[in-house]
């Protein structure tokens, strides 16, 4: 049980935990970052999604001893107090119902938009199907991703802005 050095939300933190403790529980119980949610523990629901080096992964499946790379949790997505464009879109379009899955949905959407800046519905289906929403806010999530894509491209002066 050596102290593990993790890079979380742009800070290096030292964690004392048994080597097989999933990153999910390190975040929640050891580091008190409660935005990453426990849903199933078997990589089925996506509530525990975090970004590692920009890729969306299930933190319930990554042992603390293997958690290499730059980890971003939902708490670390906003910068300098300004919401990420995807977070802002989630607020603007009032996506959430119970809200429990939405941190994971937002992080998956960020990863999707990195890979596909202007995703088609099919790409959204593929990119977002790791994340269950038991309230089934899928109509709003899809709309919000398209909206965020438009806002991102508008911010970059893309000719297809808002398309």
């Amino acid at each position: 049980m050596p102290p593990y050095k993790l890079n979380i939300n742009k800070k290096t933190v030292s964690v004392d935990a048994v080597d097989d403790m999933p990153l999910l529980w390190v975040l929640r119980d050891v580091l008190d970052l409660k935005g990453t949610k426990y849903g199933c523990g078997v990589s089925e629901c996506g509530a525990c999604t975090v970004l590692i080096d920009g890729r969306s992964v299930r933190s319930c499946q990554i042992a603390v001893s293997e958690a290499q790379g730059a980890i971003t949790t939902i708490e670390g997505l906003a910068e300098n107090g300004k919401l990420h464009v995807v977070q802002q879109t989630w607020v603007d379009l009032d996506v959430a119902q119970c809200g429990y899955c939405q941190g994971g949905q937002i992080l998956s959407a960020v990863a999707l938009l990195t890979a596909h800046p202007q995703p088609t519905d099919a790409e959204i289906d593929t990119g977002m199907s790791h994340n269950l929403c038991r309230c089934a806010t899928y109509n709003r999530i899809r709309e919000a991703i398209h909206h965020a894509a438009g806002m991102k491209s508008a911010a970059k002066g893309d000719a297809h802005a808002g398309a």
Binding site: L33, K34, A96, G103
Partner: peptide, 15 residues
């Protein structure tokens, strides 16, 4: 919009 939206999208401990 839902009154807790800002807390939800930033992962605040509300559950």
């Amino acid at each position: 919009g839902g009154v807790d939206n800002a807390k939800i999208v930033t992962g605040k401990p509300i559950f």
